[in-house]
Design a protein around this nucleic acid. Sequence first.
DNA 1: ATGAAAGCGCTAACAT
DNA 2: ATGTTAGCGCTTTCAT
Lengths: 340, 340
Amino acid sequence: MAVTIRDVAKAAGVSASTVSRVLNKKGLISAETEQRISAAMAQLHYVPNDMARSFANGTTMTIALAIDVVDARAYANPFFNNTVFGMETAAHERGYNLIITSGVKDTPASAERLIRGKKIDGIAFPVSLVDPALLQLLREKHFPCVIIGHPDASAWNANWVDINNTQAGAIAAQHLLEKGCKKLAYVAGSLHETFSRDRLIGCNQTLRAAGLAEAEVLQGAADLQAARALVQALLARPQRPDAILCGGDCIALGAARAAAASGLKIPQDVKLLCFDDTPITEYAEPSITSISVDTFELGKQAAQILISQIEGEQGSLHQVLLSTQVLERASTQNKMLKEI
Amino acid sequence: MAVTIRDVAKAAGVSASTVSRVLNKKGLISAETEQRISAAMAQLHYVPNDMARSFANGTTMTIALAIDVVDARAYANPFFNNTVFGMETAAHERGYNLIITSGVKDTPASAERLIRGKKIDGIAFPVSLVDPALLQLLREKHFPCVIIGHPDASAWNANWVDINNTQAGAIAAQHLLEKGCKKLAYVAGSLHETFSRDRLIGCNQTLRAAGLAEAEVLQGAADLQAARALVQALLARPQRPDAILCGGDCIALGAARAAAASGLKIPQDVKLLCFDDTPITEYAEPSITSISVDTFELGKQAAQILISQIEGEQGSLHQVLLSTQVLERASTQNKMLKEI
DNA sequence: ATGAAAGCGCTAACAT
DNA sequence: ATGTTAGCGCTTTCAT
């Protein structure tokens, strides 16, 4: 059997409760006994049994991140990685462990088991996994939770962290205006997604503030080919836009090929900006200016919110929006200006 | 307080141990009492306290995956995702949870805490994190573990799962031979990595078996530009190769640009094959034939090995190599053949 | 400042 | 087939 708190107590000539006190830095212990106990712990190479501790005090030092495996695999989500790392990093810093769990949607029982089974102290999940019943359970148990992504009305009073997509749209438009563009088009898969609508809203706010017309919207760019076809038609029109905001990396690639096929040069004839910063936009030719999103920070914030909820302040609501940045690449560079 | 096993026992008119028996499907219970107990559980909405169970029987139904955050972030490793998902999926199927943990290298104590603190039943880690001291601890405690990637001699008698890189090299060469190529070049960042050497070995085996010369090796393709320069020099030579095997997506892209700059067409003049299947190779123009690796399966296997170790068979050694497949794209297509 | 004792919820002999 | 009993290792009053 492993060495227990009692073995340490015996070795240090104190009682188990005293050892427990130094372990938890709770209560008052004389510096002298503290020394003795620490020495005994080190000498016996004592490692506390975390299961026993969790059992005894009902806390696990563990948080969970629910994931949508099917979704995540399908989209090969490049953001997911860093969000997990961010959560793990923040958790690690505070002495917490991170559990990854799937099947929350199809087997809500598995998440409930984690929660009511006392295996975790808090849980984070992507909006795609928000389930009314689960939310209800969490609320009535005052169980710490945070949503990654911007939930709709059903969860308005929950904690969440999200990318500030409105701001992203705004700085994207701003960047293009600064490059001298006057007529923007916005190409997306659809406007059903909140993030896509928010980007457009931010974009149009900036355009209106500059006294320009709103962006022309093209929906239905489901994949590279569709995007290419849409943009090619757009560029063939007499009043073609001088900049295109693309809702995803494949869309941007499709747009780039459409421009090439139309005999238009990027960035001279038309500028391109993409809302997803992925290797594809980075390595495209020309490389495509993108909006960079700190998904590592997103995960970090999520974990921090969870932990601060766990360790006390239950009342306050945390709803944070992370700002994005423009990563300028070749597709929006102004050759003219450079030549001056 | 939550409803306990005793509440269920009372409601069903039996003792706590009987309830425990149905919970664990251990021992013999009459169908009739089993019914009664199950009914009571459902009615009281009983959820077992997993911490108490873990504490009582020393098992946690949790496995861990150690990750190298710095590394993973730096490489933005596209494989990592699916390996995690694969592990989670396999774990989930068997009722296990997955903990992600970082800092194994810099804080070995944190991993030790997980293990000796009884928080997990088994652990998986990438080769990059293999640490002699940790391995030693695991071995002497007979603690289930599996290495992801092919360890060197220091861990020859550990469990591991890896991609069969020799086979990958072999089928890559085979594919090119079938396309009529006779003179291959192998461009890599370096040959220091085992996987890179193994691919070359497999490639050369196939070439020798076909009575052809071994591949010419070019090292030092650290990034796209370096690869481009190397390949451009290579293609300028009178005896230029008719196919290039690239050790990574950026290398492949660099090679493609080198070919274009040299006025050579892909695949007509020179064929291109890449060992990493990423969006970059998929969306390149022309799209680049790649070796596809099932990293989801890799994670699944890792978890399964861990769990089978946990649940009994301690003796046997599991060392599995996963086969890869050629994903044929435009860069190796034989236009001539098609026209026949 | 420290010790004694009870108990967290469950499991596992040992009885019957 | 089921009940009784004694812990698992730690925390936490309540004493002193």
